[in-house]
Nucleic acid binder design. Structure first.
Lengths: 269, 269
DNA sequence: TAGTGGTCTAGACCACTCC
DNA sequence: GAGTGGTCTAGACCACTAA
């Protein structure tokens, strides 16, 4: 139930990329209309629902209460709830299906797999990815890892090395580093093809965005061996930081990709 | 003014990436509610406004009529117009500024320059791009160009070769092919740094999206010479098709980029 | 102060899915 | 038929900009 002064609403909660983003940050809900730190009601509803998602109140694939139920519970109009739900849907955190309901987005379904995998076969095949883990270790975080994942000096990480194939073409060798404290026991698990669904279902960590930096490099000796290609071959290096719902960097992934038969697809809008 | 049967509305007009996209295509406005080819009113308003943009009824940077004026003119509610304007804004075709008005998006302003330029300096500098044209010719379209730009066998193209620097670092050599009939006289112009604003203002062609395919390649002799780097150096090849408001491919651009001091930034959501 | 976009509401009705 | 999301409307009020 929303307090009419909105003091009960989170003021500095996790926020995401929205145009209506206002300035005032430290000044809470600010008495309301007229305040410089104005924060629209639907934005506050967005943050409350986002928090529930971050707290794993609803599991991936699960149906949310209907718009009307949420509106009644929160004491706002259905239109306001709708606007918040639409924003969460635009951020790929929810999926809405007319006549059925609103569901927590799932990293497992066919279209979501390609949300974070931009490598495509040149011949426009479907190209489902497969993976083979070549090693897992837990170790003290390196300086690079601490910098990328925003870790303290004593932090530990789990490093996963694996090779991947796209459409049956072996083309990626990568090293994945995650903070050990966020993913306890991950080194002992059978790792699925899509790590992000494991993060969500087993550890309650939902990947919201990822920033990738691409460079062309010469294939190193280690990757050359793993990918069965000559060292020195031009390869695409993808350096990814994955960010979760609470805006924390939770994974660093360095991939080296051969692009003889695949390419990286980027759609600009 | 909208006819109440909506027969006056374009049925098969240019459309873009919207979730509410329906199936029925050939069946016009379909008697209305109940029809399987249901097409929401705001979607029809979207298409009408999109057509005006494609027809250059309003110039880049120009202010549109207010929501109320458009609603009155089209005979729909202000909320419906708003929904269409919001969708056009999400598609980067309009810019809305509270208290000022709604404007046609401009490829010239500071943030729009980077909408289609994903190369960034490694040190997070601002990195405004500069360009130097090394050659322009008009010629018969090659088989590749005809395929990429969807041209007939007798079509002609204009080819622009240039090198670019990002943040004063020379790193890109590219060839740009455009259909000669769409851009008459372009070979004789002084070309600006941002070609897409020229396309819009002089030729009424607005680039709406672009598809880029990235690969790692070895630097060829010609590019090595232009970029003053050793042949064989790993380089990022960006193969771009730019699409205009009418969903036509109107430019093919093949760029070769040295990535020693810059990277390609891709944000996944 | 006038004009613009932005928010919020309440209600009616439509389209879709599933029982 | 019941329940869900999707559309459309009308109106009130707020926030922002510029004159």
């Amino acid at each position: 139930m929303l307090d009419t002064t909105f003091d009960a609403l989170p003021a500095g909660g996790a926020r995401r990329r929205h145009a209506m983003e206002r300035s005032g940050e430290g000044q809470a809900g600010a008495g309301r209309p007229g305040g410089v730190g104005f924060r629209p009601l639907y934005r506050q509803v967005y943050d409350m629902l986002l928090k529930r998602l971050a707290d794993a109140v609803w599991q991936p694939g699960q149906m949310l209460p209907s718009e009307g139920q949420l509106a009644a519970e929160l004491g706002v109009s259905q239109g306001t709830v709708r606007k918040a739900l639409d924003a969460l849907t635009a951020d790929s955190l929810l999926v809405r299906r007319q006549g059925r309901g609103t569901f927590v987005a799932d990293h497992d379904d066919k279209q979501s797999v390609f949300r974070f995998l931009k490598l495509r076969p040149d011949d426009d095949g479907v190209g489902m990815p497969t993976s083979r883990v070549t090693g897992i270790v837990e170790a003290a975080a390196s300086a690079d890892e601490r910098g990328r994942l925003d870790l303290v000096r004593t932090a530990r990480v789990v490093r996963i090395a694996r090779v991947r194939a796209v459409d049956a073409r072996l083309c990626v060798a990568e090293t994945i580093s995650v903070p050990a404290n966020l993913f306890p026991g991950i080194a002992t698990l059978e790792l699925p093809n899509t790590l992000y669904s494991l993060y969500a279902t087993r550890y309650g960590i939902t990947i919201a965005t990822a920033n990738e930096r691409l460079k062309a490099v010469a294939l190193g000796a280690r990757e050359a061996d793993l990918l069965q290609a000559p060292a020195g071959t031009p390869a695409l290096e993808i350096d990814r930081i994955a960010i979760d719902l609470e805006e924390r960097p939770v994974e660093w992934r360095l991939s080296t990709c051969l692009t003889q038969e695949v390419h990286y697809l980027s759609v600009l809008r």
